[in-house]
Write a protein that binds this DNA or RNA. Structure first.
Length: 122
DNA sequence: GGGCTGACCTACT
DNA sequence: CAGTAGGCCAGCC
């Protein structure tokens, strides 16, 4: 209870990190989905900011968060862009033409897989 | 107190 | 499929 001395502004970011930490390995979530799961459907932009503030001590899988286009939103200028792509590939995510198939690795695809309890190609 | 920025999204052309 | 326009909201100057 003493570590929570951060300003209330950063409090919303905490919820975002919590949702991101809930993303299963081998799956990705879009900023809009994460924002909606965090309770702020219009906060897609806020999520991006939260990723930037995500401290390493939290081990937040920020690399599992991508944009609605299924592509990495980090500018190629940043070394993290290359890092994220490698991280996802390590998790089992496949990049097609530089994009990720949200139909398979997206949240909706994850639920479908859990309900059907089988591989995606069906 | 006001205005610009941004790891975005959705919709239309 | 690619490009453009509008919206949305917190952080920073």
């Amino acid at each position: 209870m003493s570590e929570n001395k951060a300003k209330p502004d950063r409090n919303w970011a905490r919820q975002v990190w919590k949702v991101v930490c809930d993303i299963p390995p081998g799956h990705v979530l879009t900023y809009g989905e994460v924002a909606r799961l965090s309770g702020m459907p219009r906060a897609a932009r806020r999520v991006s900011q939260a990723m930037r503030w995500a401290p390493r001590s939290m081990k937040v899988p920020w690399h599992r968060v991508i944009n609605a286009q299924g592509k990495i939103s980090i500018p190629a200028d940043s070394p993290w862009h290359k890092k994220q792509k490698q991280m996802l590939q390590e998790e089992g995510v496949v990049f097609l033409r530089g994009k990720v198939d949200l139909d398979k690795y997206g949240y909706q695809g994850a639920v479908d897989r859990l309900l059907w309890g089988g591989p995606v190609g069906e």
